[in-house]
Design a protein around this nucleic acid. Structure first.
Lengths: 341, 341
DNA sequence: GCTAGCACTCTTAATGGTTGAGTGCCAAGG
DNA sequence: CCTTGGCACTCAACCATTAAGAGTGCTAGC
């Protein structure tokens, strides 16, 4: 059954009030603040309908009503009036992630922090995946007897390194030779390909550098695997202040889940498909520890390519009309900042 | 005034009971469990004395007594019977930090985690300072026009890198030349010296590589500065479970303080002087957010040189007799694990 | 110097009454 | 048929009171 105009208006008003005050909204107050000339009794009838349809719920018999996650979903999809990003916030964003050293890592970190600060919730940035990066340069460095340091550099300046134990001592010449071979053969090619080709190449040849190359390959694989986990999070502790999550048990679960990152990353990778802001409200995420929370995320892109996704985690009851443009704006600015580097 | 044998015995018994149960200990229970044949009334007299001398305090008139930080201090210094590390814990420690890839970073991380897991408190490891490290190798890599990636490698295999913007494009030959100059001049020397000498050298010469070298120096400085901050922490959230800190405000302060690391690192650097386990009980740390907590720390050494310090943060009421050997053992094993790499 | 006894204090939990907010439903009115 | 006022009902929150229990300090006697 379709909701009529008045019901929509009341639902919006109720949710806005609840977001603002955090307490259940009763019929009298809603009747007064909704602006319609309607008695509380009428409002009660409408609210009863909305409850039947799953948009609202009352915590107990005599306590007004609060939105369900279904209610919030309808609210953001059909009722929300997004306010443009305030000039002040915009300035701050630019200041924090626009005027930066060209270091990717630092920019990402700054974005995470500023998200957390401006929203007073937990901010996160999913770090760009390296799978599509190309291999820029490899270096093998003899640290001491039988220990070689392998250094990988990608085209974006990501550096990864690893200590490799070798069976017999290797001279500088040999290492240079191995590095040259590696660079000549694989330089400039996407990391994924490098790993893959290296695997088949190693099966055929019995090059004396095998061991080093094999270790190097493992390092590459690790880089790709590590990718799966790389996410910056800041301001988790702000979640401690939220009265709605105060029940300590839930909260610890949440904080641990956030720290583990695994499932969260999975969730976010899903949301990288679209190109717009995306919301997971309450149980929608299908991820139990988040069932009292909402996640607002937006992918950031460089030259039209989606590199990662960023956003915030907070209570279901958050000021979506401000959070959404903020997350959106941050994603755009981050994309711009990264395209300069 | 000296404490007589009986008072010491009662104090120990009281603290042990309080550590075990977490509730204030009354005269009746103490009289029963202390093993002496003494009436509660007598115990009360002794307890009153101990309270006068600052070892105990009662939360309110009719609630038994709990130790003060002075009481705990006396307890650990004079009364504590340290139990040897359980075989089980020892096995776990070895398994987690003994059998590891030779990667320093990974070993440190594993140590942090295992400390947190075994104690159910927050575990930390202060990362070895690089100030005394020697410079192994420097590499300059042209990433693209006017961007150079500088890579520093220390003798222990620490790698640090930074993107440098240059004024005009530099060819591979020039970069190799710069790197060679750098390696020839400063290779094998302590980082501190490198920075220092580079500073004076740059003032004199007007080498055309100035800009790169200067940036490289800044990178080195950053490495040293960053040192001040580098500490791994794991399991902060376990502190959420502690009933004694449940008062949300204190706890958030604590978590934030731990996250900031600054003051904590300062505190720990103090404790690196000795070579033994060290305790900061309650206010002893002189650091407000920690005033309800104790820190147990131990330096870890390789070849007799103190590299860093590790330990745990938990409530004042913790089982010191087990925590102390655990922290001690972890420090030893970590030192051993690092000496192999 | 130790102990028993006693009066006293203070916390904790349970109890019950009151208040106020809010609902659901019904019957009257437009 | 929708709206509205009225009314009975429910429930959480608050407050005061009570009772029980734990523990202390003090004193007097052994």
């Amino acid at each position: 059954m379709a909701m009529d105009e008045r019901a929509r208006h009341l639902l919006r008003s109720l949710i806005e009030q609840h977001i603002a005050n955090g307490v259940p909204v009763g019929s009298r107050q809603l009747a007064r603040d909704a602006g319609l000339n309607i008695s509380p009794a009428t409002v009660r009838n409408v609210m009863a309908d909305l409850e039947d349809e799953g948009y609202l719920i009352s915590p107990h018999t005599s306590a007004g009503r609060i939105p369900t996650h279904v209610g919030y979903r309808f609210f953001v999809d059909a009722l929300l009036r997004v306010v443009p990003l305030s000039a002040e916030s915009h300035r701050l964003l630019i200041h924090r992630i626009g005027h930066r050293a060209p270091d990717t890592e630092q920019v990402l970190h700054a974005a995470t922090e500023v998200l957390s600060e401006l929203t007073h919730m937990a901010g996160f940035v999913r770090v760009p995946r390296r799978a599509t990066r190309t291999l820029r340069h490899v270096d093998f460095l003899a640290l001491r007897e039988k220990e070689v340091l392998a250094i990988f550099v990608t085209d974006k300046g990501d550096v990864e390194n690893r200590l490799i134990r070798t069976e017999h001592a290797l001279g500088a010449a040999e290492l240079t030779q191995a590095a040259n071979f590696f660079n000549d053969t694989y330089g400039g090619r996407p990391l994924q390909d490098v790993i893959h080709n290296l695997q088949t190449d190693l099966l055929q040849s019995r090059h004396e550098m095998d061991r080093i190359l094999r270790s190097a390959m493992e390092l590459g694989e690790e880089m790709l695997e590590e990718d799966q986990q790389r996410m910056l999070i800041e301001g988790e502790f702000q979640l401690l202040d939220l009265p709605e999550l105060a029940g300590s048990d839930r909260l610890r679960e949440l904080l641990n889940a956030v720290r583990q990152k695994r499932d969260l990353v999975h969730l976010l990778d899903e949301s990288m498909r679209g190109s717009e802001v995306r919301l997971f409200i309450g149980e929608e995420s299908g991820f139990a520890p988040l069932s009292d929370c909402s996640v607002v995320s937006a992918p950031y892109t460089v030259d039209g390519e989606v590199l990662g996704v960023l956003g915030v985690i907070g209570p279901m009851r958050m000021p979506y009309q401000q959070i959404i443009p903020l997350v959106d704006g941050t994603a755009h600015l981050l994309g711009r900042a990264l395209s300069q580097s």
